[in-house]
Amino acid sequence: MKTYLKNYSRNFDYPLFFTYLLLCLFGLVMIYSASMVWAVNKLGYSADYFYKKQIINLCIGAVAFAVGAFIPYKIYKENKVLLVMLSFMFISLLSVYFFGFSPGNSGAKSWINLGFANIQPSEFVKIIVILYFSAVFTKKYEKGKIDNINESIIPPIFVLFAAAFMVFLEPDLGGLMIIFFIAISVIAASGIKFKTFGKILGVLGVCMAIALIGIFFIRDSFFTEKRMGRINAFFNPFEDEQFFGYQIVNGYLAIGAGGIKGLGIGQSVQKMGYLPEPQTDFILAIIAEELGTFGVAIVLGGLGFIVIRALLIALRTKDPMARMIAAGIASMIGFQTFINVGGLTGIIPLTGVPLPFISYGGTSIILLSLAMGILINVSMFVKRERNKV
Score class of each variant (00 low, 15 high):
Y8S: 07
Y14D: 01
L16P: 00
Y20K: 01
L21E: 08
L23W: 07
C24M: 12
K42D: 15
L58E: 00
I60R: 11
G61N: 06
V63P: 04
A66G: 10
V67H: 09
G68A: 07
G68L: 02
Y76M: 10
K77D: 12
E78N: 15
N79G: 14
N79K: 15
V81K: 04
L83T: 12
L86I: 15
F88A: 12
F90N: 00
L94K: 15
Y97T: 14
F98V: 14
G104D: 06
S106I: 11
S110H: 10
I112K: 06
N113G: 13
L114V: 03
F116V: 11
A117Q: 06
A117C: 11
I119A: 08
K126M: 10
K126A: 05
V129M: 12
Y132D: 03
V136I: 13
F137T: 07
K145E: 15
I154P: 06
P155L: 05
P155H: 06
P156C: 02
I157A: 13
L160F: 09
P171K: 10
G174E: 03
L176E: 06
F180E: 08
F181Q: 07
I184W: 10
S185Y: 02
V186K: 03
G191I: 03
T196H: 10
T196P: 07
F197W: 07
I200V: 13
C207A: 15
M208I: 14
A209H: 14
A209Y: 13
I213P: 11
I215Y: 09
I218Q: 13
I218R: 12
R219K: 14
N236P: 05
N236W: 04
G245C: 01
G245A: 03
V249R: 05
N250P: 11
L253I: 11
A257P: 08
L263S: 06
G273H: 11
L275K: 11
P276N: 04
E277I: 08
T280M: 11
I287W: 07
A288P: 07
E289W: 03
G292A: 01
F294V: 15
G295F: 00
I298N: 07
G301K: 05
I306H: 02
I306G: 01
L311E: 05
L315E: 14
M324S: 04
G328T: 07
G328N: 09
A330P: 03
S331C: 12
Q336C: 00
N340V: 02
G342F: 00
I348D: 02
I348T: 14
P349G: 01
V353F: 05
V353G: 10
L355E: 07
G361D: 05
G361V: 02
L370N: 01
G373C: 00
L375S: 01
F381G: 01
F381R: 06
K383A: 03
N387P: 09
V389D: 15
